[in-house]
């Protein structure tokens, strides 16, 4: 639903990078790998948290 606050595996806080990551990869069409490097998300376990995430709040919102 929302981006997890921390990486499931190592516990690094990844939630804070989500909005910048989304903006830069979806709208500015940057290479996700480079964006993650610049954000300091280095380990594969943290990278998959951002790469594989899909925001679902907007889809769930009408069914309160």
């Amino acid at each position: 639903m929302m981006i997890p606050v921390r990486c499931f595996t190592c516990g690094k806080v990844v939630g804070e990078h989500w909005e910048e990551f989304k903006q830069r990869t979806k709208e500015d069409d940057e290479n996700p790998a480079e964006v993650l490097d610049e954000l300091g998300v280095e380990r594969p376990c943290c990278r998959r948290m951002l790469v594989s995430h899909k925001d679902l709040v907007d889809i769930v919102a009408p069914y309160q």
Binding site: I3, V13, G15, H17, W18, V57, D58
Partner: peptide
């Protein structure tokens, strides 16, 4: 909060 940009809920 150590990080201020963590989204909690939309």
């Amino acid at each position: 909060p150590a990080d201020e940009n963590v989204p909690i809920i939309d």
